[in-house]
Design a binder for these strands. Structure first.
Ligand SMILES: [Zn+2]
Ligand SMILES: [Zn+2]
Ligand SMILES: [Zn+2]
Ligand SMILES: [Zn+2]
Lengths: 137, 137
DNA sequence: TTACGTATGTAATAGTATAACATTAGAGGT
DNA sequence: ACCTCTAATGTTATACTATTACATACGTAA
């Protein structure tokens, strides 16, 4: 079946489990919970939580997805250069999550870090908001 | 026993459960987990997780403690004016957590928020570091 | 007093994550 | 091709984190 030649090492190293979990997160675009992922992928052959968590761990490590800590959820990275740094807005009302892509923010954080002599290895920023559609209602 | 007159409303409103949980966190200074708190306070009369979680919820709401989301832990607020905004450094090696008190950081974040038009209600910032004692070793 | 909101106590259960161990698949060197 | 090493898998069990539900008590204010 799956012709897993060794081209394209960076992207094609993914195993079957990792790939189907990544695809689900990609298609969804929303933060998903591990057990929801498990339920969704039963038909693809995932049977146990551990299979999901192992795939998630690997994908986080590769920077392809992020964990939204305060939601116990995982979301596709749409930024492609986070290097395990994350910044999200989270709507307090509807739960919608957006990864912040703004370069000003990234630069601003870097500046903050320099100015405050924080010897950091990475960061995780969660900004709680009321999103546009929720503000209307 | 406990003469709970209604003086000093802001601070003395705490109930017995809330008070003993707060005291433990205060004495510890470290982030503690709910079930550790439960075990520690069995002798004080806490029997069930729910008693702990209810106290924790209230104390978070009052701004007296914070939840460290990525550790599933709770820590005393040593800042006194966070208004549910939090900023921590977390050592990746030893797990030591410090609340950032630096006013420059607070102001810097506010600036970031203004510049990026983030309509936020609160934020939670986690900076992963290697702390001094861990860097030596 | 009555009524209301908030806190309690207790039991059960839901939701999140990892440990342990045996097995398999792949990449790289010889 | 064969050996070897590492990483991933499959499976079961278990640990850890948090909430639901419901009955009861307490404090404040009308
Ligand atoms: Zn990202
Ligand atoms: Zn919303
Ligand atoms: Zn604080
Ligand atoms: Zn350390």
């Amino acid at each position: 079946m799956s012709s897993n030649h060794t081209h394209n090492k960076k992207n094609q190293t993914l195993t079957k489990n990792q790939r189907i979990v990544l695809n689900l997160l990609q298609d969804s675009g929303e933060p998903l919970k591990a057990y929801f992922i498990l339920d969704s992928l039963k038909k693809e052959g995932l049977n146990s939580p551990l299979q999901v968590y192992r795939a998630l761990d690997k994908l986080v490590e590769l920077g392809k997805i992020h964990k939204v800590e305060s939601l116990n959820s995982f979301i596709i990275c749409n930024n492609s250069n986070c290097a395990s740094n994350t910044a999200f807005t989270i709507c307090e009302r509807c739960g919608k999550v957006k990864e912040i892509k703004n370069n000003n923010l990234t630069e601003g954080v870097n500046e903050l870090v320099r100015e405050n002599k924080l010897n950091i290895t990475r960061y995780n920023l969660e900004f709680y908001v009321v999103c546009k559609s929720c503000k209307i209602n």
